Amino acid sequence: MKLTLLATAALALAPLSASAAAAPTSPVGTWEVALSGADQGTAYVTFEDDHDFTAYGLSRESLGLFTLSGTWTIDGAGQLTGSYTETINGGAVTGTLTAKLAAKSITGSIAATNGNFTFKAKPETVTQNLAGSWSGISAVGKNRLPEIYQITPSALAHVYQIEGSGISPLGGQYSILGTVLAGANGKVELVAFSLDAWGAPGFSTLTGNVSVTRKQNVLKGNHSSGTPIKITLRR
């Protein structure tokens, strides 16, 4: 009798357990996306319940924020699929995505006119406030250039504008303008343009982990000249 009751209880509970473990059927909400493959970067993607989605982010190949918009659906196999148009560096590219939904993640791949990508997404979280005055030493090749920056929030969540200046031993003072994107766990993406004392333009793309409470932070990347660049930051 006891065995019969236990078996009946187990059968009754089994559907509930399977249902609880089932993957979610909708991605609606905002997600932080780590992008890799033909390009690398970070984006924030918002899926709407009307099956539209929008995004913005920074990548190694973007000279500022890229934006995109598209549509999504869940196919017969339970996969997230979608298509989009992206604006990047003044041009437009198109792509399609296929992804797997889990309770706290989305993982998938993208085929686009600018390459093939993979991505991992997690729910959007509160990121640290990077606003304020910062100083740094920019190491470009053998040159060590002192710089100062003022970082201010933009109208977009997690996005900041950077203005500053530096001193070159050969060219004197130069100006700096750029964009910063903050991610979870201190992750930072940055693209900055500089104009030296002779008016020659250049830009740098950098990434790293930053803490506003840490005495020293390091971002690494590349200058448009092809030279590796490292910036040591202090707040």
Rank of each mutant, 00 (worst) to 15 (best):
D52Q: 14
G90P: 05
P123W: 12
S83G: 05
A139C: 06
V28K: 11
G136Y: 10
G76S: 11
A92T: 12
A92E: 10
K122L: 08
R60T: 15
G141L: 06
A131H: 05
G37S: 06
N114T: 02
T85Q: 07
I137Q: 04
V33D: 06
G41R: 05
D50A: 12
E32R: 00
A121H: 03
S133L: 07
I88H: 02
F53Q: 04
Q128V: 06
T87C: 02
A21T: 11
A92S: 14
I148Y: 03
T96V: 14
T113A: 04
E61Q: 06
L35E: 02
T71F: 09
T87Q: 05
Q128P: 00
G132H: 13
S154G: 09
S17I: 15
S36C: 02
F47I: 14
A55E: 11
A34F: 11
G82N: 10
T42V: 14
L16V: 14
E61A: 10
D39L: 07
E147K: 02
V126T: 14
I137D: 04
G70D: 04
T73V: 10
I106Q: 03
T54I: 13
S135Y: 07
P27M: 10
A111K: 13
E86I: 10
H51L: 13
S62Q: 06
A20M: 09
I151W: 00
T98K: 03
F117T: 00
G70V: 06
Q79E: 05
S105R: 06
H51E: 15
N129S: 07
E61P: 01
Q150P: 01
N116E: 15
A38C: 03
S36M: 06
T67R: 08
G37V: 12
L16Y: 12
Q40F: 00
R60W: 08
I74R: 03
I137R: 01
L58S: 05
A23P: 09
Y84L: 03
G76W: 06
L145M: 13
S138L: 15
A21C: 08
I88L: 10
L63F: 12
T125Q: 12
S105M: 04
H158A: 00
G70N: 06
T85V: 13
T42R: 00
G108F: 09
E147V: 15
W31M: 02
S17T: 15
I74Y: 03
G108H: 11
V33N: 08
W134R: 01
T85Y: 03
A157G: 01
E61R: 07
T25R: 04
F119K: 03
F119M: 00
T67K: 07
S36A: 08
A131E: 05
Q40V: 03
E147T: 13
L68V: 05
